[in-house]
Design a protein around this nucleic acid. Structure first.
Lengths: 137, 137
DNA sequence: ATTAATCCTATCGATTTAATAGGAATTACA
DNA sequence: TGTAATTCCTATTAAATCGATAGGATTAAT
């Protein structure tokens, strides 16, 4: 299942992408529009800012804005920040590889084999989708 | 993340598929071979039996066996039984569709749009993979 | 009978997730 | 210079899920 964090994060990014460029968008406005608990959204946008996808401006008339063009923000990046590794098992993760405790031989492991295929197909989608695609109406 | 339940289930199915036909395979043997907690595996195999993928024989010399040829056991079926819906959000699930509470319009929902693509790509893998593929060495 | 296996239900502990709380720091602007 | 509006940060909590275990009932072979 997709976590609410990711779901909310994607919706918020889409909201920002659809709004006027270079005008910081405020958490409470996004939260109301997208029906997201405000405090929860705060922490999510903070994560996105720390990862470099969003920029922020503090104080009155502050808010969040995109650091790049929507067409340059790949889903691989967004999903990794929000949801974590794309692979469903660490032993097929490109960025966070880890050997399974229980697995004796990856070469003959059926789970490994199947999950590599799932990973590749999912990656294909995320590599070919940008925030611009999501925010297109 | 893939649950341990699914991981263990796939390994057990592979074990059974690789072993001699029509000879029931015992939980404790599979558990030892695949390094799975026995009691946990018991409950998993029970689920697979109730779903019709496995058959069982009770008592001495009992165990579990496949109800169909490995080449006829699709991953769509196995994954749905073990892991649940393939879709990452209920609003794009083919078999368990549910509208999101918060979503005002699915047609313009960016999460919906993205997750449909992920679902289709994952389904593609699962529809084209059978237990025979997993158990091939 | 005895032994060996599945079957069933219940429960427990740990982890993760979703959300909340409270206030510090910063900025605009009157 | 003061006040309101906003992000920033840390901690906490409540609920859900996951992984595993416990204990025995049932069934079948010998």
């Amino acid at each position: 299942m997709l976590s609410k964090k990711t779901k909310y994060g994607l919706k918020a990014l889409t909201y920002i992408a659809r709004s006027e460029d270079d005008v910081p968008q405020q958490v409470n406005v996004i939260a109301k529009s997208e029906q997201i608990p405000q405090k929860f959204l705060e922490s999510i946008l903070l994560t996105l800012r720390k990862s470099g996808i969003l920029g922020s401006k503090k104080g009155k008339h502050g808010g969040y804005y995109l650091r790049k063009e929507p067409s340059e923000i790949l889903m691989t990046e967004v999903m990794r920040v929000l949801e974590g590794p794309i692979a469903m098992v660490p032993c097929v993760s490109l960025n966070y590889y880890e050997k399974c405790d229980d697995c004796i031989d990856e070469a003959t492991c059926s789970v490994n084999k199947l999950m590599i295929q799932v990973r590749d197909n999912t990656l294909e989608v995320f590599r070919n989708t940008t925030l611009a695609d999501l925010s297109a109406v």
